[in-house]
Nucleic acid binder design. Structure first.
Lengths: 193, 193
DNA sequence: ACAGGAACAGACCAATTGGTCTAAAAGAAA
DNA sequence: TTTCTTTTAGACCAATTGGTCTGTTCCTGT
């Protein structure tokens, strides 16, 4: 890893939570300079423009989320246990709290009319999240945990939708209760699969 | 309605869709001047500052949404028919499309860390939406449409969460299909109530 | 019709924005 | 250690930002 690569990564990691919190338009270069302690010339030596930093910030946030989620899921065996662990990790929201909220929601809501490249990446992240849940359900069907009639894609969409919806509501209400209730509902529903 | 009041309202109505699309930080005063055709002095003669315009824009968006929703629901009789009509109106998303997306999501995602007054209003709108669905369910229980055991608050939260979640996903994916699927799931679930 | 007040236009302002450029500093290769 | 390239600092830039202020225009009540 060259010096430049390390600096680039450093900037992304420092900038990401700020951009996630303040938004792409709301976070200024001064904010990023302050957070990194670097001068403007250095930042522009490593990025084309602010938009590129925003895009990379979203990539970093989503990738690091997946990484920490996978690390959390790793000890659990069996697709059903993994799915429950997935729900519990979402409920705990440690990564989210550290990073200033769910990046899919924050970047998704802002990018849809203004930043097509970011929007495209958000889309991909939603897709792969849904696919991951789908694959967990499918495994569960194979292993006999769930009925063979289970419509895995549809139920995965439902679970993901409930989680995203509950995450926004809980964040705006500044109250974990709603997310807790929804996670409990999902858990109960899984038992009927 | 005085001249000033009319102008104030005019500014709000023209600015709201822009702020909803570009975000509070992303929409500039020049944008608002262009959309209204008014000069800066006029705008600042009617508002304290940009933040006030943003707050009023959210109020306008949410109130006009409620109004058009109620107008749509009016012809239907019976709480169950009204609930289905509520879902269908959400699915159609006419108001949302005209205004540049769901204001609860757009303003909610942006305000949570930066605009406490807006956030508070978004919170209230979420509350009253949930309460409205709850009351429809409760009416349905009274009239015998649903089982007396139905947990109206919880199911209302679930329905609202699914709708908000599906609205974001469909908007980012730029595809009505996900929202359609979710609305169908909700409709099917109502039948089991 | 007119007087007085409300509403508006737009010049003006300081501060900040994203972005460039050059010279100095730091790293890497020899 | 010296050379040469890469990386960084920060002065600089034009454009734009949110916001103020004054003079003009437009209403409205008499």
């Amino acid at each position: 890893m060259s010096k430049a690569e390390r600096t680039r990564q450093f900037i992304i990691e420092k900038a990401a939570p700020i951009i996630n919190r303040k938004g792409m338009a709301g976070a200024s270069l001064s904010d990023i300079m302050e957070a990194t302690g670097l001068a403007k010339g250095c930042i522009y030596g490593n990025f084309e423009n602010k938009d590129e930093i925003c895009l990379e910030a979203f990539n970093y946030l989503s990738q690091s989320y997946v990484k920490s989620m996978m690390a959390h899921l790793q000890p659990f065996t069996g697709s059903k246990a993994k799915l429950i662990a997935y729900l519990d990790y979402t409920l705990a929201g440690k990564h989210r709290d550290e990073m200033g909220g769910c990046p899919v929601i924050n970047f998704g809501a802002e990018s849809d009319d203004t930043h097509p490249a970011v929007r495209e990446r958000v889309k991909q992240v939603i897709r792969s999240s849904r696919e991951f849940i789908t694959s967990l359900l499918r495994e569960g069907v194979e292993s006999g945990d769930y009925s063979p009639d289970l419509n895995c894609e549809t139920q995965a969409l439902k679970i993901y939708t409930l989680l995203e919806g509950a995450v926004i509501i809980s964040r705006i209400e500044n109250n974990r209760e709603q997310l807790e209730q929804i996670v409990n509902l999902i858990k109960a529903e899984i038992e009927t699969f």
